[in-house]
């Protein structure tokens, strides 16, 4: 299905105060791909993600989701097919209970009460959070909040999942659970993060951004072991690719996903 394709052409964006956040970004993401977006703070990752669901509209250039260009007139369709999970789950969870929050999107899609119910149930089931349904968001742990935030987006059954820093603030086990949850999804995934090890686990392809432009786009394993490239982009080698700090041994080949 062509629906799951994301295409960005010569995208430029200037904020109202005149700062240029994106300079000529171009890439094409195919159906079912899982792509990491990495770069230092202020590289333009979040700004880029906000263009994919039309929260920001291009100053110059074009963003297409499937066959549809992202424009003011097409926002409704775009937001149905692109689900965005924001960095701070507290921003994403604004309704008084988990259940109502997960139902928020489907209700805006004018689904029938039964349709809404089955969406809510399905989404919460997917993230193993059915038991949290009637809880208020302020009584969830960080990991639970993250899972529920993902469910709020899944309930709209998007074709494409966009996640901004999904592993930020999670303890190691919650982070691990999140990674295995995400890797189980068949959606096209676009993940922006500083957690390069997670990108290594989750994404076959990576886009490296620096000062609003794409400086590299290719297989994750190759890019994230390129010390020079990472250093230039304000990053460093992920632990999984670094030599052992104790004995200096290089990581076993199995640690790096095969392409």
């Amino acid at each position: 299905m062509s629906h799951h394709i994301v295409e960005v052409k010569n995208l430029e964006y200037c904020y109202a105060d005149g700062t240029t956040a994106l300079r000529g970004v171009s890439f094409r993401i195919e159906h079912g791909e899982s792509v990491g977006v990495v770069g230092e703070n202020g590289a333009g990752k979040s700004t880029l993600l906000l263009h994919l669901n039309g929260c920001l509209l291009a100053t110059k250039g074009e963003v297409r989701v499937g066959d549809i260009p992202v424009m003011r007139e097409t926002l409704r369709q775009i937001r149905r097919s692109v689900g965005t999970v924001f960095q701070d789950p507290n921003d994403q969870l604004f309704m008084p209970t988990v259940g109502e929050d997960v139902a928020f999107g489907p209700l805006n899609m004018h689904l029938s009460p039964d349709g809404v119910e089955s969406r809510v149930h399905g989404a919460l089931d997917t993230v193993n959070a059915l038991h949290l349904r009637s809880r208020p968001p302020h009584r969830l742990s960080g990991g639970e909040k993250r899972a529920v935030a993902i469910a709020t987006v899944l309930s709209m059954s998007p074709d494409i999942l966009v996640l901004d820093e999904p592993s930020a603030g999670l303890d190691p086990q919650a982070r691990r659970r999140l990674i295995s949850l995400l890797s189980g999804f068949k959606h096209t995934k676009i993940v922006a993060s500083h957690d390069l090890d997670m990108i290594l686990d989750l994404c076959r392809r990576t886009i490296v951004m620096h000062q609003g432009a794409v400086v590299a786009d290719g297989p994750t394993a190759a890019l994230l072991s390129d010390r020079n490239l990472l250093a230039k982009s304000g990053l460093e080698l992920p632990l999984g690719v670094q030599n052992c700090p104790v004995c200096g041994a290089s990581p076993s080949a199995s640690a790096i996903p095969q392409i």
Partner: peptide
């Protein structure tokens, strides 16, 4: 930010 998150889920 909340506004953005609401928009992204079809809020009108």
């Amino acid at each position: 930010r909340v506004h953005t998150a609401m928009l992204a889920r079809g809020f009108d």
